[in-house]
């Protein structure tokens, strides 16, 4: 039972991170129908920024909690700036181009950013300081769920709530929903679509950075390549849940997290990634629009 719970919470932690990254994919896809391949790299840059902030701060002798908070804030801010810039350079000039062009541009951007970090920082795995403190009250259940796992789950939950409130009630949130439904119509109704797209990238990137800081601190090491596999998994999560749907991204992330956790725990750890993709293929075959996605019949 303990083992089951351990896997359960492990899956929940993983799933939360996937969900955080998946939100960026799903929001961007909802609005401009682009698989933003560079999104995984934004997450990786978030993790690196946090590493740098943590390094500088610990030299200044700050305590753990304030380092964690500073690292989260600064890396979210920087990732958002990167997301914004990437959109302006690689996607905005391609608004009316053939469908595949932005995708290739995104793949190029992803390769570029990976190598940028590789050259400016390092190609090796870098140990990442554990920024999340060990809580005393977690001691009795430590074999099931670590402190950092608790923090990840709680922080993710809070971020989700804030995001859904933001999208539901703010003006720009409404504009985002309108743009996702029909970009042309939103434009005609006076929505500044360019701004909506920018905001979408900024929010998505900030969330990815949040995920990056949390998971890096949990796992304890990063390198320039972590964005790729995390990005693909998160995209898988977004598709699983039904791309374009925000609750879908969260659900997809959790389903994926649990699948991986239980499959590696009970079956074999060699095929961790295979399970994720098999799950994806199976779900898409039986529910082609994802778990929460709507199948919209094409109007003829």
């Amino acid at each position: 039972m303990d083992y089951f719970l351990e896997l359960f919470f492990g899956g929940l932690t993983r799933g939360s991170i996937y969900a955080l990254i998946a939100l960026g994919y799903t929001m961007v896809y909802g609005i401009i129908e682009l698989i933003n391949f560079a999104h995984g790299e934004i997450y990786m840059i978030g993790a690196f920024t946090a590493l740098i902030v943590a390094g500088v701060c610990s030299l200044l002798g700050l305590n753990l909690i304030s380092i964690l908070i500073l690292a989260i804030i600064i890396s979210m801010f920087y990732s958002a700036a990167y997301g914004y810039t990437v959109e302006k350079i690689a996607y905005k000039p391609l608004r009316n181009a053939p469908r595949l062009s932005p995708l290739i541009s995104a793949i190029g951007m992803s390769i570029f950013l990976q190598n940028y970090v590789l050259l400016a920082q390092t190609s090796d795995f870098v140990p990442f300081p554990s920024l999340i403190p060990e809580f005393e009250f977690m001691e009795p259940v430590a074999h099931i769920m670590g402190s950092s796992e608790l923090v990840i789950i709680v922080v993710t939950a809070i971020a989700m709530v804030i995001l859904s409130l933001f999208i539901k009630f703010t003006k720009i949130g409404k504009a985002m929903r309108a743009t996702a439904q029909d970009r042309k119509m939103a434009l005609l109704c006076g929505v500044n679509v360019d701004r909506v797209i920018s905001v979408t990238f900024i929010i998505g990137s900030a969330l990815a950075a949040l995920g990056g800081v949390l998971i890096a601190s949990h796992i304890g090491q990063i390198n320039f390549y972590i964005g790729f596999i995390a990005g693909i998994k998160a995209f898988t999560a977004a598709v699983l849940g039904g791309i374009g749907s925000i609750p879908g991204a969260v659900l997809g992330g959790l389903v994926l997290g649990w699948t991986e956790s239980f499959a590696t725990g009970y079956v074999s750890s060699d095929y961790e990634d295979v399970f994720a993709f098999c799950l994806l293929v199976i779900i898409l075959i039986f529910r082609p629009a994802g778990i929460l996605g709507r199948t919209n019949t094409q109007k003829v």
Binding site: T236, I243, D273, F277, C278, L284, I285
Partner: peptide
């Protein structure tokens, strides 16, 4: 046979997944 019913981007991600599955199988 199973995946060609899917629309554009879903097809993209499933084929990507398939590519990775093949590679991971070869690796493990």
């Amino acid at each position: 046979i199973p995946v060609l019913r899917l629309r554009g981007d879903y097809l993209a991600i499933v084929t990507l997944g398939f590519g990775e599955i093949i590679r991971l199988i070869l690796e493990n």
